[in-house]
């Protein structure tokens, strides 16, 4: 996780520090079912998603919210993180992150 974060190209030092704190924590946790549910599904876009999201928060929020989410709600969420919370995510990255979240964590049941 730490190595992945470091490969992400430009990340300001403070943000990298935050990422490393999270990564250290993940490494310290014993392997168990509990750690599995904090690890995101391995599919294209995961590294970018983890790298950007953990600047501000742990990734548990993603699987925890999946039952409430579909592509449209993930789009709103990513937009909120960028526009309201100032997340440093480019348009191209936002699309990759949205594709990843929509493909892997959209468990909202249609009414």
């Amino acid at each position: 996780m730490m190595r992945r974060a470091a490969r992400l190209g430009w990340v300001p030092a403070a943000l990298l520090c935050a990422a490393v704190c999270s990564a250290l924590w993940a490494d310290a946790a014993p392997a168990s079912r509990a750690t599995e549910i904090t690890q995101l599904k391995d599919s294209p876009g995961r590294d970018l998603t983890v790298g950007r999201c953990i600047i501000c928060h742990s990734v548990e929020y993603i699987p925890a919210n999946a039952p409430a989410m579909d592509r449209a709600s993930w789009q709103k969420s990513v937009q909120k993180m960028r526009e309201r919370f100032g997340a440093p995510i480019t348009d191209d990255e936002a699309k990759q992150i949205l594709d990843y979240l929509a493909a892997n964590y959209s468990d909202k049941k249609s009414p």
């Binding site: 924590w25 953990i54 925890a64």
Partner: peptide, 22 residues
């Protein structure tokens, strides 16, 4: 109806963890 993870913050007994950061 959801998965529950129980963990302890320093000074706290084990609580249901929704997120560790924040």
């Amino acid at each position: 109806g959801t998965e529950e993870v129980v963990a302890a913050l320093p000074g706290k007994r084990p609580l249901i963890q929704h997120a560790f950061r924040p």
